Computed example of a mutant assay.
Amino acid sequence: MLLPLLEFRSVCYTYPGTEYPAVRDINLAIAAGQKTVILGHNGCGKSTLLFLADGLYRCDSGAIYWQGEPLKYQARMLNLWRQRIGLAFQDPEQQLVAATVAEDISYGLCNLPLSEAEIARRLHQTLLDFSLQELADRPLHHLSLGQKRRVALAGVMALQPELLLLDEPTAYLDRRQTRHLFEELDRIQASGTTIVIATHDLDLAYAWADWAIVLHEGRLMHSSPAPDLFGCADLLEELQLGLPTLLECWYALPPAYRDRRSPPRTLSELRSYCL
């Protein structure tokens, strides 16, 4: 049996100066290759879980494992850990540290034991992969928010992590920018990187995820294949998530129309039913 890529065992964490844990007694596993979504209302612990996974916060109790090996909080081990796991923050401006696009993407590479030739090669390839060649020398403060998010993601992926964590990746993006972002994520996932997204956007989760995790007030309420969660309207209501828009429209159709058909996950799939 394959070990999970990342595993939480009885993990608890309380922010300094607060009374109640932000996450409590979390047990869950992230499998390699799956597109995993972490759902829940604001303040449920989604971001905290990602920060713990990346080693930015230290568990108060419990432990986090990478393919069976526990996270150790010594500086050298944390550097190795973060080469495997990349984290893109909700606000890209918190992640951009250099003056220009190329300098920012190079920043993380320069902290790795790489030759100048390898740094240059990875920078060039990353600029190509994320269509940033024309922006390479552009000052970061001249970029739009959507461009900044792309640069922040490029900087993470230049390190070639095996697991990519994204915190509310569609925040501040319009529909076109969101579509482009998920085209990038599909490419990243197809290249072998496992992706986990924390979001409260049910429509995004419904269309995208293979596996769904639900948090509520810091507790793990649900973890299953995404179709199992979204295939049960009563469970979604019980978890106080509501219904994705497309699924709500689907259930509004006459039962005779829905018989013998699986609920569509995209508009194009719904259109195919109408042909």
Rank of each mutant, 00 (worst) to 15 (best):
R261K: 13
A190F: 10
R219C: 07
F130V: 08
M157S: 03
Q125M: 13
E69I: 11
L247Q: 06
A226K: 00
A205S: 09
D174Q: 06
F51L: 15
R84I: 06
Q160D: 06
A99I: 14
T178C: 08
A212V: 05
Y13Q: 03
E183L: 13
M77I: 06
P255M: 13
L236M: 11
N79H: 14
A198I: 04
L241V: 05
Y15P: 00
A207M: 01
L143N: 13
T14N: 08
C274Q: 12
A53N: 06
R219Y: 07
L135M: 14
H222D: 01
L5R: 06
C44L: 11
V23R: 12
M157F: 11
Q83P: 03
H222K: 05
G40E: 02
W66D: 01
R261M: 10
R76M: 01
F89N: 00
D60M: 07
G43H: 07
S224H: 09
I197T: 04
A152Q: 12
R149A: 05
I213L: 07
F8E: 00
I38H: 00
A29I: 10
G86I: 08
R24D: 02
T266Q: 05
L112G: 05
H41A: 09
L135Y: 11
L247D: 02
L56A: 02
L143I: 13
S131G: 08
G62R: 02
Q125F: 11
Y15T: 04
Y206C: 01
G155M: 08
R187P: 03
S115P: 04
E103C: 13
S262I: 07
L128V: 15
I188P: 03
L143M: 11
V37E: 00
L173R: 03
R271T: 11
S223A: 14
E184K: 05
R82I: 07
C44N: 04
G45R: 03
A99P: 03
H141T: 10
L39Q: 01
G218Q: 07
D137P: 08
H180V: 07
T126C: 10
A252T: 10
L239V: 06
A120Y: 11
T48Q: 06
L239P: 00
S224N: 09
L96H: 04
W208V: 03
A154N: 01
E183F: 14
Q147P: 04
L80N: 14
Y273W: 08
P244C: 12
Q90S: 04
E93D: 13
D259G: 13
R187K: 06
H180E: 05
A212M: 10
G33C: 14
Y57C: 05
S262K: 15
G33T: 08
A158Q: 02
P21Y: 07
E69C: 11
L80C: 12
L135E: 03
E162Q: 15
V101R: 03
L28W: 04
W211S: 01
P264G: 09
L145M: 14
P227Q: 04
L181W: 05
M77H: 10
F8I: 05
L112Q: 11
R260L: 12
W250T: 01
Y273C: 06
A136M: 07
I26S: 01
I119G: 09
L71Y: 10
G242W: 12
D201W: 04
